[in-house]
Structure formats: structure tokens, C-alpha cells
């Protein structure tokens, strides 16, 4: 399902290497806030659409602060959408209860929950992408490790991320070599596949062995130590408490409804 688009990861890393106020925030602050965001968004009843609107502010603010191009995020959303779309589309088919909309229109309630699924999807995915794009894998892992992520797993993530490019490049060269020698552009037979991938696997294992040698050469004793340069500042505290308060407010009060009443004069 997930193709190893080395380019996708590379683009993400380029964005993560930008300098911006969002990038300068401590990874822990962004991780905690993003997590709270996800929980808040997902905790809404399933037909809720309008009350989700205020939550757009968080990914939009983070992405804008970070100078992350909106087109990039939109493209990622489209690419990732099919599963949620597919499962969500059953809702309008299965849930036919009519619901009145403003203006005397009626729709099946399933359409509302479908819209809600799409809104949740767009919110959660863009927030998660914003987190990584504004933080970078290295700082995120270091931050999560300080929040209690097991060291072994943090290191695993870092190594995986580091060697993604290297091994993907090898795979790409293999695929290219294969394409040059096959006329019809079809995927190879299982037998050829086995030896291709087997070779790639053996080469990967050899590389792991060499990396291990290089680690030993510089005193590796089973423990990966990181510099951990991050500092928690007042800005991080402000960022965290501010957003948490906002998420809570938007969760307990239907802010759009409130704003709308103000505007349409319904408020007494």
C-alpha cells in the first residue's frame, strides 16, 4: 500500500529543515498538542460537522507558521484519502434517516456522518503531517523519547528513517536494471522476484553488519546516546497551554454555532 517514495520522505525532511517559529518550538510541545488535537477531534459524535470547524485553526496555524506549502499538504491528503473515503461512503448508503438542513433541504443522515468522516480525516491527517514537517524525525524522536518512548524504539525509528534512502536507492537501481532487460515492462516472475529481492535482502544485511562495525569502531556498547539539545522554554509552555485551552473550549462549546448566532442576531 505504501510505496517507498524516497522522494516523499526527502521532501518532508527538506520541509523539516526549514527555519521558522514553528520549527523552533520544542518537539515535545508540538507532539503533546497534536496528540490532544487528535483526541479532541475524534471524540466528537459521529454526525458532527460544524463544531469541528474551529479545529482547522491548529493545522492551518502550524503549517503557516512553519512555512509549509498548502499544496503539498493537500496533495498528501488526496493520496491518503481512498480508505477513509471507501469505508465512509457506506454511511450514506446505510444510514438513510432524513435530516433537515437549513433552507428546507433534507439529506440522509449518512451524508452528515460521511462529511464528518471526511472532515476528521482532513483534520487528523493534516495535523499529523504538520507535526512531522515542522519538527523533523530526529527532533521528534528525541522529544518522544524524553516523553517516555522506549529508547530502543526511538533508535529503531531513527535508523529506519536514515536507511530508507540508502536501501530504496538500491531497490530503484535494481528495478531500473530489470526494466532495461525486460521487453514488455511486466513485473518479473515469482522466481526472478525471489532472487532480486533476496539479493537486496542480503545486501541490506551486509550493510547492517558494516554499520555495526562502524558503530563498534566508535565505542558503541549497546546504548545509543543522543546529544539532546532541545530546551523547554516559556514559548513552548505558552504554545502548549494555549492550544490545549482552545481545544477544550472548542470541545465543550460549539463555537461556530455561537459565532453564527452573534452574526445572525439570534443571540438574546
Amino acid at each position: 500500500m505504501a510505496m517507498a517514495h524516497g522522494g516523499t520522505v526527502q521532501r518532508m525532511d527538506e520541509l523539516a529543515a526549514l527555519e521558522s517559529p514553528a520549527h523552533r518550538l520544542d518537539a515535545r510541545a508540538k507532539a503533546v498538542v497534536t496528540f490532544a488535537f487528535l483526541v479532541a477531534v475524534m471524540s466528537f459524535p459521529r454526525h458532527e460537522v460544524v463544531a469541528l470547524a474551529p479545529y482547522v485553526l491548529y493545522p492551518v496555524a502550524l503549517l503557516s507558521l512553519g512555512g509549509i506549502p498548502a499544496r503539498w499538504i493537500l496533495k498528501k491528503l488526496l493520496v491518503a484519502a481512498p480508505f477513509a473515503l471507501f469505508i465512509g461512503l457506506f454511511n450514506p448508503l446505510l444510514d438513510r434517516q432524513p435530516v433537515a438542513l437549513p433552507g428546507g433541504l433534507f439529506v440522509a443522515a449518512g451524508w452528515l456522518s460521511f462529511a464528518s468522516i471526511l472532515a476528521r480525516f482532513a483534520l487528523t491527517v493534516s495535523a499529523a503531517l504538520a507535526l512531522v514537517a515542522c519538527t523533523g524525525m530526529d527532533r521528534l524522536c528525541a522529544g518522544l523519547e524524553r516523553l517516555g518512548l522506549p529508547r530502543a524504539f526511538a533508535v529503531q525509528l531513527l535508523f529506519l528513517h536514515r536507511y530508507l534512502f540508502v536501501i530504496s536507492d538500491e531497490a530503484r537501481r535494481m528495478r531500473y536494471g530489470l526494466a532495461l532487460r525486460t521487453a514488455d515492462g511486466r513485473a518479473p516472475s515469482l522466481r526472478v522476484y525471489g532472487s532480486l529481492l533476496g539479493h537486496l535482502l542480503l545486501r541490506s544485511m551486509d550493510r547492517a553488519q558494516r554499520i555495526y562495525g562502524a558503530m563498534l569502531a566508535r565505542g558503541f556498547d549497546g546504548e545509543i546516546r543522543i546529544l539532546g539539545t532541545a530546551r523547554w522554554t516559556a514559548r513552548d509552555a505558552l504554545f502548549t497551554t494555549g492550544w490545549l485551552a482552545f481545544f477544550a473550549a472548542a470541545r465543550f462549546w460549539n463555537l461556530p454555532e455561537f459565532a453564527g448566532r452573534l452574526l445572525t442576531g439570534e443571540l438574546r
Partner: peptide
């Protein structure tokens, strides 16, 4: 191969 040696982020 420097890629074997430069493994940190």
C-alpha cells in the same frame, strides 16, 4: 562507504 558510518540523524 560513508553511508555505513554516518548513521545518526
Amino acid at each position: 562507504d560513508p553511508d555505513d558510518q554516518l548513521f545518526m540523524p
